[in-house]
Amino acid sequence: MLQQLRQWIARRRTGITGTIAPENTPKPKTPGDQLLSECRLIVLDLETTGLHPSKDEVIAVGAVAINGGAIDLSDQFDLILRRPELDITQTVLIHGIGPEALTQGHETEDALLFLLEWMNGDPVLAYHSAFDQKFLEKTLKAELGYTQNHTWMDVADVLPAFFPDAKTGGKGLDHWADFFGLEVSARHHAASDALATAELTLIALNKAHKEGLKTLRELHDKLRYHRRLRNIHHN
């Protein structure tokens, strides 16, 4: 992936813009008959300056891909955005690319375009996904004018749907990570949290397989059903 990204950035900097333009990014896929055991899923986590999409900004994007039921570490996305207009001292860096390549010009746009290309329109999972979805959609719209709807699924819903009796002691990522004894290398680092979320997703997919759930649509439906059930209880 890094190789690809490097080439792509190089192309853009030399003015050969290639085929990717905001309007040419891969089309988002809808949950259909794709087999869970074969399809690609994006698991993503954002780091932001705060909790309010209206005034806060994205600092970093960490994401891993689940391919055919396994986390493929050769297919990951780890990006720290520098936003000079925000007072953030974090150095600009897309890993594998020298800082100077991104300090000038369209670094944020480039990075976001590449993210869209890398996501390939595949369904996105995140922990408390509503938060990540709002921030990412806002950023994509502001920077690229991009407004297409991706399929999002909330891992915070997926887990209780498959492990309704788990005594986690809370609803947070930490609670579930502790419950399954996961070791998170650097909590609150976007890429690290994305990996932990992806690990939890693998556990849930394993359970889904045993319950006979095969397709993305079945998973999506189960989540919807679970959410509705929960709302009834809440009311």
Partner: peptide, 14 residues
Amino acid sequence: FAEHATLRFYADGD
């Protein structure tokens, strides 16, 4: 090793 690895999950007894 790390860049070429995949991570898989197996439940108890798998």
